[in-house]
Design a protein around this nucleic acid. Structure first.
Length: 679
RNA sequence: GGCGGGGUAGCUCAGUAGGUCAGAGCAGUGGAAUCAUAAUCCACGUGUCGGGGGUUCGAAUCCCUCCCCCGCUACCA
């Protein structure tokens, strides 16, 4: 069990929004607990993360706000970095993929593959938005399904009937960005031949599972991908936001995010090494077969970390350069839901880390999330559970055990560690229990059963309370002070051990406990022995875990109900600005006639100030054409023109429907001038 | 439609080499104790392990089928 060399990475969060509690449960908290534990174990470990800052969604966000992508990523990089710090993530480095050091790494990998002829160039027709001057990813093109007629089908697949087709077959394609009809334009891209690595990947995963015991859910996801068969994947995109493809003929192309984002782990480690003053230090981890590399991610990322990334590293390692280590384990978690439903930014459901930490300290959150990690299936975060975990576990069981022991020692032993005298059976049993705990929790952490490890650690506090009760020191202090001293000495030892065991989970509070014990933390393996010597002076105890009152929690829950109602009953509150985008104007009908083949439509000519328009209105069932002439009505003047029955309609007449289904057009007094804006 | 996950005590969740596997924590009921943040400790669960069928001496655990929920198939752990 000498010094293990470990490289731990946590999924790079996408810098397109603030991270929420779900992200923490999925990857970051388990990673941090594992790393902190391993550090106490004395491992030589480096913990790497950073922001993933390229890709189309970021450019879309930027366009929406009318700013540059750089501003988006700067904003969220900062927010998320700060959120992680407050939450107690102990990254050795938190980098970002927009840095030159990462661009260089991405290019290096691309060129290595390109030069060795691994990448295949293929031409294809892609939708191109001429107004936005960009190629459109599949999900930004919408049209009518050639198979079932579904009108919101994607460019290559219909969500309604499941049909797959070529983008050229899609009817009435429309760009989701500008709403315009995109054109098909030829482009060429480089593809990574993932399929030709399938056999090796399958073997790699089976081997790793046999040696290191991969999680069942992770294996399932991989099997699914293998069953479907791996295919070539494009590693480039037509986009200007990202890492430029480093060859002359690739103007306007960048590396596709999935290809370069995972390399962010490597470049972040490089950055760390540089900061440490040894540029090559990163190689000691990435390029040494002795390194144990563990990648913490959420389930959505399994394919990239268990298949794509290993395949890329295999491809690299087939060359003659220094070779990289592949992940030895990828303990992906499922998802955390929020009060029974999925976290959703757009539906305003859930809470961001940064907001949560404005309300509560990190440790209760860390403990609550850790005690309910979605290790084998999705779980939920409930405000009530959060309160309960804090109040009845952290405060009542752990906090109170510490408090009752320390105040007792303060009162009756001048705050000095009492000497252990005669060890009776009950004492022996407690000492034995304390001594086996580090190993017990260790075993669970080593096999990535973080949740069980945390709950097991809490059991030592339960045992401490029981030992305290059964020993009844409040009685022995009067009858047998030596015996009382022995009891308290052992309780103090339990507290010390607890502080150590809890260090990875609730680091801020564990520090406080050590401070109250007036003691330094020790290595994991030293825990459970006699860490506090008799006569050692303790500091004044204080409450570590204040309770959270009902009102505080209720306030948060009320917010939820409100945001829920808001969505259901008043889903569309719009601003005055939104309304002002609709131009309602007074128009005079100067002619009206029926359309031959239509029962509902009338062709109207209307006059707006000095302009005439043709409007096709669906009011034929309620009006005779002649009765409409000279009427002054209200129309939407800036509606996008549409074709109805082959005729262009340049606006819309407003009308209301009564119970019988008859329409009444909104009309105004004849004194109002044509073209007047309705406000 | 396709893919994936799940349906185990009131609640949140454990539980696959099929045979103390019917569990833990919380909540609830009763009791003990009073050093302590009214905090602790002890005792108490007749749950069809979603329904049905099958394999087996024996299944929550394997196979088949049905029902229900959720997620993904848009960015996102």
């Amino acid at each position: 069990m000498s010094e293990e060399k470990i490289l731990v990475t946590a999924a790079l969060p996408y810098a397109n929004g603030p991270i929420h509690l779900g992200h923490l449960s999925g990857a970051y908290l388990p990673a941090d607990i594992y790393v902190r534990y391993k550090r106490l174990k004395g491992s030589d470990i480096v913990f790497i993360c950073g922001s993933d800052e390229h890709g189309v969604p970021i450019t879309i966000s930027a366009d929406k706000e009318g700013i540059k992508p750089k501003q988006i990523i700067d904003r969220f990089h900062k927010i998320n970095k700060e959120a992680f710090e407050k939450f107690g993530m102990s990254f050795d480095n938190y980098s970002r993929t927009s840095l030159p050091i990462h661009h260089d790494t991405g290019k290096e990998f691309f060129l290595e593959f390109y030069n060795r002829g691994i990448l295949k160039e293929k031409k294809s027709l892609q939708f191109y938005d001429e107004k936005a001057k960009m190629f459109l990813p599949d999900r930004y093109v919408e049209g009518t399904c050639p198979n079932c007629g579904f009108e919101e089908a994607r460019s290559d697949e219909c969500e309604n009937c499941g049909a797959l087709y070529q983008p050229t077959e899609l009817k009435n394609p429309k760009s989701k960005i500008t709403g315009q009809a995109p054109v098909l334009k030829e482009t060429s891209h480089w593809y990574f031949p993932l399929g030709s690595y399938q056999r090796r990947l399958e073997k790699y995963i089976i081997d790793m599972d046999e040696k290191y015991g991969w999680k069942e859910n992770v294996l399932q996801y991989c099997r699914g991908w293998f069953r479907d068969g791996l295919e070539d994947r494009a590693v480039t995109r037509d986009l200007d936001w990202g890492i430029k493809v480093p060859i002359d003929s690739a103007e306007g192309k960048v590396l596709y995010v999935w290809f370069e984002a995972v390399l962010g782990y490597i470049s972040s480690t490089k950055e760390w090494a540089k900061d440490k003053g040894d540029e090559n230090l990163w190689k000691k981890y990435w390029q040494d077969v002795e390194t144990k590399y563990v990648a913490f991610i959420g389930k959505d990322n399994v394919v990239f970390h268990c298949i794509v990334f290993p395949a890329m590293l295999m491809a690299w390692n087939d060359g003659d350069k220094d070779k990289y280590v592949l992940p030895q384990n990828v303990p992906a978690n499922e998802f955390l839901n929020f009060e029974g439903k999925k976290f959703s930014k757009s539906r305003n459901w859930g809470i961001d880390v940064i907001d949560f930490l404005k309300l509560f300290p990190a440790d209760p959150l860390r403990y609550t999330l850790a005690a309910n990690l979605p290790e084998s299936r999705d779980t939920d975060f409930y405000w009530k559970e959060f309160q309960l975990r804090n109040n009845s576990e952290l405060a009542d069981i752990l906090g109170n055990f510490i408090n009752r022991t320390l105040t007792f020692v303060q009162k009756h032993f001048d705050g000095k560690v009492p000497e252990r005298k005669k060890i009776e059976t009950i004492d022996k049993e407690m000492l034995d229990l304390i001594s086996i705990y580090p190993e017990k929790v260790s075993k669970l952490f080593e096999s990535y059963k973080i949740k069980d490890g945390v709950l097991e650690a809490m059991n030592l506090a339960r045992a401490g309370n029981k030992y305290f009760n059964d020993s009844e020191p409040w009685k022995t202090i009067k009858t047998d002070k030596e015996k009382c001293g022995t009891t308290l000495g052992i309780c103090l030892q339990a507290i010390y051990t607890l502080a150590g065991l809890m260090m990875p989970v609730i680091p801020f509070s564990a520090e406080k406990i050590f401070a109250m014990l007036n003691s330094e933390k020790t290595s994991w393996d030293e825990l459970g022995g006699e860490n506090l010597k008799p006569g050692h002076q303790l500091n004044t105890p204080e409450i570590i875990f204040p309770k959270i009152e009902d009102e505080i929690i209720e306030k948060q829950m009320e917010k939820l109900v409100r945001s829920d109602d808001l969505k259901k009953e008043e889903p569309e509150l719009i601003s005055i600005n939104d309304f002002s985008r609709v131009q309602l104007r007074v128009a005079e009908i100067i002619s009206a006639e029926r359309l031959e083949k239509s029962q509902k439509l009338l062709k109207l000519k209307v006059k707006l100030e000095d302009e005439e328009r043709q409007v096709i209105a669906g009011i034929a069932k309620s009006y005779n054409p002649e009765n409409l002439v000279n009427k002054k009505v209200v129309m939407v003047a800036n509606l996008k023109p549409a074709k109805l029955m082959g005729l262009e309609s340049q606006g819309m007449i407003l009308a209301v429907e009564n119970e019988k289904g008859e329409l009444n057009v909104l009309s105004v007094d004849s004194s109002v001038k044509n073209g007047t804006r309705v406000k």
